[in-house]
Amino acid sequence: MKNEEIILSEREKILGRIREALKVSAPLPGSHSEVAAHATTESPASHAREWLPSVGASGAEQFDLFAKNCADLKADFQLLNNREELPAALQKIAAAEKWSRIASHDGELSNFASVSLGLPVLLTDKGYDVQEMEKCDAGISECDALIAQTGGVVVTNRSAGGRALSVLPPHHIVLARREQLVADLPAAFALLQQKYADNYPSMISFITGPSRTGDIERILVLGAHGPKKLTILCF
């Protein structure tokens, strides 16, 4: 009880100080520069699309841009002709990397893909042992969207088998359908808002390339703590 009271009173104290401080208004941003501050009733960021890096108008251009961004990020992007090519593409990676077990989750695409490999699969949906997941060679997951503008993948813990599946195993395989490609970041946020509205998954992650660090002499090293490899299989 006493603790509750302290917490409440600190909250009120801080809010009180804020309200007191805000009685004096601050100059609008940009008052020291050439660009005039424009008063607006809509969100200043609502025109972000017009300022962010441009994306092509057509779907083909956007796929090209996505592929180019993936190459820059050192992510492997494979555009397949149809769903039936998925098993072969996966087999090839599994053989090259000598996978012996994988982690995945229950989903139409992910089931199809992981079953096709014929390897032991750790499914995350009903809870799992993290030590077991740590021993998996790859995590295979679905996603919410691909973003042409950044070469990124959007996952949530609902669409991609929880919080750890996409970061704990050393190789993250993302399965996507062509229609999941969106043009830019504003479109990705609009999609999330529309899809989840008032019931957001507790984790939404924009993954842009495999895990990396530049903390030693600013030299890029992949696989700092998360996956060393990120492969996006899209059909």
């Binding site: 949906d125 809870g127 799992y128 984790m203 924009f206 842009t208 390339g209 495999p210 998360g226």
Partner: peptide, 22 residues
Amino acid sequence: GQPMTCYNTMYSGPRQPGECDG
């Protein structure tokens, strides 16, 4: 000088009913 940082993650709660980890 990156187009996007590698992971940008939005958290809106602890593990929710029906979620498998967190």
